[in-house]
Write a protein that binds this DNA or RNA. Structure first.
Lengths: 143, 143
DNA sequence: CTACATGCAAAGAGTTTGCATCCGC
DNA sequence: GCGGATGCAAACTCTTTGCATGTAG
C-alpha cells in the first residue's frame, strides 16, 4: 500500500500530535523500503533525504506511527524488529529462507485454519501479520 | 517432554563435546521452566541449584543444546528469545495475550493450511514451532 | 597432559530515556 | 508563547567475545 492517499497531518492532529518534517520523512522511508524494513534501514533512507534527522527520532516516530496504526511492527525470523505500511486488510507473509523472497498471502487463506483452532481449543487468534518461513517454489526445486 | 530419557553425555560425546555439570544444570532448568523460557529465567533456575554457573555459560550452553537439537529456540511475541525442550514431533503454541496461558496444538491441525498455501503459492513452509497470539476462551468471554 | 569448557570483564548490537533546546500551531 | 518534538549523550537490555584459568577424558 502506498501512503500517498493518507493524510498524516490529519491523523496526527486528531490524536493531539503535531506534523513535522521528520515524521513525514520516516513515513516516506517505510513506504519506500517496501515492507519488512528494520529501523536502521529506515534511518538510512531518511538520511538520504535529510541529514537533519536523528536516529532517536526515527525510533520514536516508528513507535508513534505504529500507535496510529499507519505502520505495523513485525518480528521477523531471528526476532528482529521490522516495520511496514499497514495494509487495508490483514495479510501475511511467506519468506524464503534461501533467496529471501517475500510473498504475501491473503487472510482468507488463513481463516479456515483459525476456525479449526477455535473449534479444537476455544482460542481466538488475532494474528494480523504472520510471517511464515520456508522455501519458495524455485528454491525448493533447486535443492 | 521430559529429558530424563535423553542421555546428554552421549549426545555431547558423539559430537566431540564434553559432559559438564553446567550443561546438565542448564538442560534441567529448561525442562523445569516448562516451555517458553527466556535465557534470564533459565539462568535464575540454574542459580537456584548452583551459584557456580555464569550467565555467559548459560547462553553458550543454550546455543549448544539448540545445535544438538535437544532444545528449540522460539521467538515469542515482542521478538524475545525463548527456549524449550524439543518435542518428539513438531507442535505449535497458542498464547493468550491477556492471561499468558500457553496452549499447544498439534501439527496435524496445521497441515491442511500448509497444503493450501502450497497449492496457492507453491511455497513449502517449514514452521516447526509456530506461536500464535490471541485470547483464550475464558479471557475472550471475560471482555 | 591436552584440548575443550568456564568465569570474568569488556565489548557489542539494538533500543530507550533525560534533558536542554527548538519550533508547530 | 506554550507545550509538544527534536537532538544529543548517556543509559539500558540482551547477548557475544577475548583471554586466562580450570577440568574432563
Amino acid at each position: 500500500m502506498s501512503h500517498d492517499s493518507l493524510n498524516l497531518a490529519y491523523l496526527l492532529r486528531r490524536e493531539g500530535y503535531r506534523m513535522t518534517m521528520q515524521r513525514q520523512l520516516v513515513l516516506d522511508a517505510v513506504c519506500e523500503a517496501g515492507g519488512h524494513a528494520a529501523p536502521e534501514q529506515i534511518y538510512e533512507i531518511v538520511r538520504r533525504s535529510s541529514e537533519a534527522v536523528n536516529r532517536t527520532t526515527v525510533y520514536r516516530t516508528l513507535r508513534l506511527l505504529q500507535e496510529l496504526k499507519v505502520i505495523d511492527a513485525i518480528y521477523s525470523n531471528g526476532g528482529h524488529l521490522r516495520y511496514e505500511i499497514s495494509g487495508p486488510q490483514p495479510h501475511h507473509h511467506l519468506m524464503c529462507r534461501r533467496c529471501g523472497a517475500d510473498v504475501e498471502f491473503s487472510h482468507e487463506l488463513f481463516v479456515p485454519f483459525l476456525e479449526r483452532i477455535n473449534e479444537a481449543h476455544g482460542f481466538i487468534v488475532d494474528a494480523t501479520h504472520l510471517t511464515l518461513h520456508g522455501k519458495c517454489e524455485a528454491c525448493f526445486r533447486r535443492n
